[in-house]
């Protein structure tokens, strides 16, 4: 779009695109998307705050469960009780941290957006202009996320401040924090490329709503959004642990709460990076195959 080379005709050899030009293009895309998002910041902040409401009921539910188990066990309060490896404050901290993880990894409208563009023929524009669809979407998404964080940081800070008592161990040491941030960033990228890959399926099927509903169903329960995955019985737990869905919510929270032993941390992060690489390749490959199949439906 903002690329100065878009006016060049194909008959002349294209001059090589410098990195400076590329960065300038990216910057224009990010700025536009940012402005678009900031237009409705009031609605945005309110929406973010409201999204914490289900957490409140979760906290009360788990509070009641912990109370019941403690009373049944020894008829007295005992903070050492653990369910799935989590005591009550950790459980609350876990749900708050998965909110942060989801703020990174959730991609509302990404797959449906791609499917709509394929169905309506808008994808043509990426085939003609010297802009890469996946790259463009990624940049827009980064801008949307940045806009989201600038607005959402207020509600998040408020809720974390109110709930600081549940973080009994305080901040984890530096290397855990770095791993936590790394897992958040990779969670964002895995979320992006995973959902973009689902969107690419629309090159073959045109309609992906049904598929997306199934994906959302599994992602909601098996990403750890609903409960820590360590609660699962071993018979299914091992399988869920093999799935990449855990990187969308469970994994970053587990790192922060030091549920992943230090010696396994590096290995787990490398595994996550491998999954990320897999999804990047899958998404790219599907896009390349899809474009070859594409026949320009709609306008």
């Amino acid at each position: 779009m903002g690329d100065p080379h878009s006016a060049t005709f194909a008959s002349e050899p294209l001059p090589p695109v410098g990195i400076g030009d590329r960065v300038r293009t990216w910057w224009v895309i990010i700025r536009t998307a940012l402005a678009e998002r900031m237009a409705y910041r009031g609605d945005f902040a309110l929406g973010t705050l409201m999204r914490f409401l289900p957490i409140i009921t979760q906290i009360f539910l788990w509070g009641a469960i912990f109370d019941a188990v403690q009373t049944a066990d020894q008829g007295g309060a005992d903070s050492s009780l653990r369910i799935g490896g989590y005591n009550f404050p950790e459980m609350v901290a876990y749900f708050l941290l998965t909110m942060v993880a989801r703020a990174f990894s959730s991609m509302p409208g990404l797959a449906t957006g791609i499917a709509n563009q394929v169905r309506q023929g808008e994808i043509k524009k990426y085939l003609i202009q010297p802009i890469d669809l996946v790259g463009f979407l990624l940049l827009t998404r980064i801008a949307h996320k940045l806009a989201y964080y600038t607005v959402a940081i207020g509600p998040f800070a408020l809720v974390f401040f109110l709930c600081r008592g549940y973080f009994t161990d305080g901040l984890p040491p530096a290397h855990v924090l770095i791993a936590f941030v790394g897992s958040l960033v990779m969670g964002f990228l895995i979320g992006f490329f995973l959902e973009a890959a689902i969107g690419m399926i629309s090159f073959w099927t045109l309609e992906i709503n049904s598929l997306l509903l199934i994906f959302m169903l599994f992602s909601f329960f098996l990403s750890g959004h609903m409960f820590p995955l360590t609660l699962l019985p071993d018979s299914i737990g091992w399988l869920v642990n093999l799935l990449p869905l855990k990187y969308l919510a469970f994994f970053p929270a587990a790192i922060f709460l030091r549920k992943i032993p230090d010696e396994e941390l590096a290995g787990e992060l490398i595994l996550e990076a491998a999954w990320l690489a897999f999804f990047i390749i899958a998404c790219r490959w599907m896009y390349a195959r899809g474009v070859r199949r594409y026949s320009g439906y709609g306008g």
């Binding site: 469960i65 329960f221 019985p233």
Partner: peptide, 15 residues
């Protein structure tokens, strides 16, 4: 499934 999971750990919701 989620609530069946919860009842693996507790007999009751709330004492």
């Amino acid at each position: 499934g989620f609530y069946l999971l919860v009842f693996r750990f507790t007999m009751m919701i709330g004492p």
